[in-house]
Every structure is written in C-alpha cells, then in structure tokens.
Design a protein around this nucleic acid. Structure first.
Lengths: 206, 206, 206, 206
DNA sequence: TATGAATGAGTCTTCATTCAT
DNA sequence: AATGAATGAAGACTCATTCAT
C-alpha cells in the first residue's frame, strides 16, 4: 500500500520533471503529450491519470517553480540582515532576477505563462507544504517593514512584479531595447520610485 | 496592369482584414489559415503568395494596429494643449489605455503578441506611410518637453510601456488582482514616479 | 460466508442496475465500463469478475427486461377474461407495446439489441426463477387456445414479434413513416391477418 | 478542369468502394477511417474532404445500395409479365430477398443500419440520377395495380418492409428461430395476408 | 474477493503546405 | 497570379483489459 502510493508519487514526479524539461527546452506549444510521457518513461494513458491536459500540468508546474523561487529568495533575505524596506524589496527582486538571468529557459517559461491568477493560486496553495505563501508573505513583509502605511500593498507588489517580469523578459532574452545590464539600474530606480510613490497620498489624475 | 496591381492590393487587404477580424474574435492559436482565407474570400494558395505563415501576418498586423493607435494619440495630444511633460506622457498612456479598455479584443491581441522588437519595427517602418514613427516620436517628445535631461529616454518609455501593458492586461481582462478602476490611480502614480526618477541621478544599487 | 455471498449478490445487482440505467440513458455505445462501475460504486476490476465484457452484461440485461415484461403481460392476460385466441395475442402485444410506448428508453434498448436468439435464451433460461418461459408459454397458449391447428406456432410468434418490434421502433421513436397512433390500427389488423393466415393451408408461392 | 473533376470523382468512388467493402467484411464498428482510406489508397485527410464522418459515408452508402436493389427489382418486374397485384409485391420482395440471401454481408449491412428515414431519403433523392424513387414507385405500383383501394399505401409498404427485413435478418443470418427455407412460405403468406387486410375496412380494435 | 493504477493500442480530427491546373 | 484538391504528419484523448497488492 505504501508501495502503491510511493509508485504513484514517482510517476507524478517523473511527469512533472519530464514536462518541465521539455517545456524549458522546446516551449509548451512544441511539446506534445506523447513527448512528455516518453520522456517520463510512462504510458500515454498515465498522463491523464494525473493531469487534465497540457495546460493543467503547465499551471501546476509554474506554481511549483515560482513558489520555490520565492521561498529561496525569502530564505536568503533572512540571512542577509537588511534594515530598509525598500532594500528588502529590491533584494528579493534582485535575487529572483539573478536566478532567472542565469536560467533563461525558466525565465521564458515563467514570464510567458504566468498570469497573476495562476501566480497567486500557485503560491498561496501549494501542493507541497511550502512554509509560506508569497502573497501573504509580501503582505507580511510590507506590514512589518514599511516605514509608513502603503496605500494598496497588493497593487504595489503587482505593479512591481509586472514591471520586472515584462522588462526582464525583453531585455534578458531579446536584448530589446537595451541589454539587461543597461536596464538594471533604471529598473531598480523605477521600482524604488514606485515603492515611494505608493506610500504617499495620490497626486491628481488626468 | 494597373488593374492587376489593384487586384493584388485588394486580396492583400482582404487577407489583412480577415485575419485581424479572426485574431480578435478567436485568438491567434484558434485561427487557422483556412479560416483566414475563407473569411477573406480567396483561395488557400493565395495566402502563401502574400505571407510566409500565420506569424508573418500577425506581426505585420500588430504593426499596423499599434502604429495607428499611437498616431491617433499623438493627434489628440496636439489638439489638447498640455504644458507639463509628465502630463503629456500620462495623456498618451491614458488615451491608448482608454481605447484598449473599450476594445478588449484589441487589448488581448496586442498585449499577448507585442514584443518590443515588433513594436519598434512595426512603428518605425510602416507598410503605410504613417507620418511619424513612434520611437522617434517619443524621443522628440522627450527632447522637446522634458524639463531636465532624461537619463535614458528609450528605457524610460520601455519601462512605462511594459508596466502599463502588463498591468492593464491583467486588470482589464481578468480583473486580477484588482479592477482596472482600482489600479488606475496607482498605475498613473507609478508612471509619474518613474518619469521623475528618470531625470534624477541614480541612487545606489544593491 | 452467507455474508460473502450476499455481498457478491449486491455487487452483481449494483452492476446490473448501473448498466441498465446508463444503457437506457445514453445507449450502449456511449457507455463505457468505467461509467458502469463508477455508477455502481465498485472498482473497475470487479466488473470482470462478473461479466466477460459490455455485451455480456447487455445480453443478460435484455433477458431480464424482456422476461419481466412478458411475465407481466401474462399475468394481466389471466386477470382479463378473454375468450378469443386472436384477441389474446392482440392483448399481449397491446400490453407490451403500451409499456414500451410509455418508456421509450426501454423500447430503444430492447428493439435495437434484441435478437431472437437472445430473446429466447433470455426468456427460456432465467437468472432469476421466472415462473414460466416465454417460448414455452406461447406454445402453450397456442395449443390451448387456437381454434384450429396453427401451422407453425413459433414462426407465427416470430413474425408477429418482429413485425411489432420493428414497426413500433420506427413509429414510436421516430414518427416514421407515420405516428404510432396512425400505425396502430393497421398493425393490429396486420397481426390478425397473420394469425388467420397461419391457420389455413398455404396458398401458392412465387 | 475536366481532369480535376474526374480525379475527384475517382477519389469519391474509391472511398465509397473501400468503405462498402470493409463495412460488409468487418462491420461498421470495427472499421476505422484509417482502414477506409488505406483500402482506398488515398490520404486520411481526403476522407474529410468528402464525408463528415463514418456515419455520413454509411448513410450515403445505404442509400446507393438500397436504391440500386429496388431499381433492379423494378426492372425485373417489368420484364416478367405478372398480372396480379399481390403477386407483384411478392415478386419484388422475393427478388430483393433472393439477392440478399446470396449476399449475406449486404443483408447484414442494410438490415442493421437501415432506418425508414434513411431508406426513404436514400431512395427518394438519389445522388445518382436513378430513374425512379422507391416510395413514389410503390405508390404508383399500388395505385395502378391494386384491385381495390388500399387504406394506407405507405403504411402497408412499411409493414411489409419491416416484417420482411427483420425476419430475414434473423433467419438468413442466424437461422433463428428456423431456417429461411422454413420461414419463406410463412412469410410470404403473412405478406399476402397483410396486403389483403389492407384493402378491407378495419375490424374492431382491442 | 476486490481494488484501481497502469497500460498502450486505437481513433478521430485538424491543418499547414504543396502543386498540378 | 490564382486556385483548391490532396496530402499525411501530428496531436489529443479514450478505454478495455491486466495485474500487483
């Protein structure tokens, strides 16, 4: 019985690993389910025992990947003793971007397929018992560290995440419109500006 | 001869219009070349006389669409007499977002498929003789209007564009993580912050 | 031990009931063994403990259903005191058709899948101890009631059964070529004609 | 152009012939579209150029087959000079059954899949320009030959057709409940009885 | 006896692309 | 230049059946 359960876990992991591997190598569209199961060494039907379709495994894969990335960032942040709130945010962004810069397939995979919804769900409710979910984590981070009250914490995080994700994708993977090296200082400055502006009362709108 | 040329132009336009129509309605993936030619009223083979494949017509279509959008924004900006540089940028962003908000299919189409490269190429070199290419336009706008020197004009535009595009996509189309109404003030504030921060010397990096 | 036996019987019945239910609802082709076992609340493997395949359960199901229907008809016939032989036959036909008219799924199920072989086997040798098998019953009915000798009793029954079954299927379920209401008098007249003709010497053949 | 048209007709015929062949040999369920196209020597996609699915080709095939059978019967009837109305009907039935008896696969194919609707449509409106459609033909036959007025011609034909079809299927193919030889005189007698009863006023119903 | 995970053959269907006309 | 019939690879998904537990 334990044996059966173990075996199931093995198959599941093999499928995850296989799909991850192929999605990164060839992209999702070019990866067929046939490819995934062959690469995993299981039968075609087995795939459908664990996943609804290709997009199911994709979303669950993104959840795992993004979750782990932020968990690692969090652990590093705790080691590094950083007092300033702004610097903490930048630290996390920098950590995550650093990882992605060194692993372009993951950057491509995550950026192209990560919707905010999947992101949140992915991180909030983990298959594996992550110690901490990202959204709550960010809220906590903000509540405990922001020097003054942030107007709308989730929106701030959202804006920073979207900005970082989109601009990194373009610069790191396509060197457009500039190299990532050139972008970096401007991006971080922009993020700092967003953080600061999120703590002040709004200026007038158009 | 002129008639032949005219006929060719007609087919080309029919294909463009048909693809645009279908891409907006059903998305690119779900649109087959068969669909496009049927909708255009031409034969299958004819498609390959004008385009390499589906992605060729897509890119050229995005170019047209984005170019026209910014041209319209520019014309409106000229009508409205806005002195402040920041306000001019916000005006353009607001105009474009306004259009997209009212035409979600276009928003989906452009956001999902617009890479910076395509965007620039699309706008810089137009199939039709647009009066003005966007990138140059923005450079001009900055040079003539920025009160102090912007550190890196194209990067600033790039950051603003990516931030606006990504965050609007999520909020307008999916209401994630908040409604667009809720996002709007925060987004504009963030853009203003980015503009301001782009004119100051950089703070220290991590 | 009695408990084990009881449990087996329960599973068997659950499978019968489930398959009957689904066959009537969706038809045989569209019903998978997976559907049957799920609906029955037993495991997939269990099905194969009791049945060879889908067609095995189908045939045994038809046997039960048809047998019960004719048993009920017989009981009603005994209650109603009908002297004429012809009228007795018509009574049974009318009773059975009446039931089927009110339960179209059963009509569809039986008509589409009832071969004479299955029918006879189904009724002659019952899983459950029916009091009487149909064929023998009909023979008995004829022997005891026919005013003059019927040339070939089983063939007469066969012809009547096939005629009634086929023509009801088409009219009741598809209203083709006429409504069942329109058909009914003609059908009964035809059956009477067949009964009468079965008792006379044959006319010449082509 | 004539060449293209000719080629298309060839493909269509090849598909028809192939499917006919396989349906007769293995039955419809066991015949896959792959089988059909391979047997026809065309590509898989070609099938879908001409037919919607397997059931589309089946219905059109039945139409052709049944139509031709009755056309042949009609021609033979004209050759044979038969005065009596009853005998004419019997002649046609006998002709058709004779053909089917010698070609059991066709009998199986037609009987199992011929609904009255398909039958009528099949014969009434032919792909090929048959000289005569069966239903109209029967009506004509009745009108011109019946010695007295038939109460409901189409119903009479329907009853005869269903009776003959169902009882032949069982006896010829499965020898159930008797051999076809044994059935034949009884069947013809029954048909004659139906014809006669269709020309008289109705007796009382149950 | 009962289970249900695993299998993998089997089937339908779509579609980009070619090429003879 | 234009057509559209033909191709056949590619892909998704189902399901009866087996077998280790």
């Amino acid at each position: 019985m334990g044996k059966v359960e173990e075996n199931k876990q093995q198959k599941l992991n093999a499928l995850f690993a296989s799909a991850y591997d192929l999605f990164l190598k060839q992209g999702i569209t070019k990866t067929s389910i046939m490819d995934i199961v062959q690469n995993a060494g299981v039968a075609k039907g087995t795939f459908y025992l664990y996943f609804k379709d290709k997009y199911d495994i994709r979303d669950r894969l993104i959840a795992r990947t993004a979750g782990r990335l932020f968990l690692a960032a969090h652990k590093e942040l705790e080691k590094a003793d950083i007092p300033s709130f702004e610097d903490k945010i930048i630290f996390i962004v920098d950590y995550v971007i650093g990882k992605l810069e060194n692993n372009k397939p993951i950057l491509r995979f995550i950026s192209k397929n990560l919707s905010w919804g999947v992101f949140r769900q992915a991180i909030t409710k983990n298959d594996e018992d992550e110690e901490l979910s990202s959204i709550d984590y960010f809220r906590l981070l903000i509540q405990e560290n922001a020097p003054v009250r942030v107007r709308n914490p989730e929106v701030m995080i959202f804006l920073i995440a979207e900005l970082a994700s989109a601009s990194c994708y373009s610069t790191i993977l396509e060197n457009e419109p500039v190299s990532f090296e050139e972008l970096k200082p401007e991006l971080y400055e922009a993020i700092r500006a967003i953080i600061r502006s999120s703590t002040l009362p709004l200026s007038s709108e158009p």
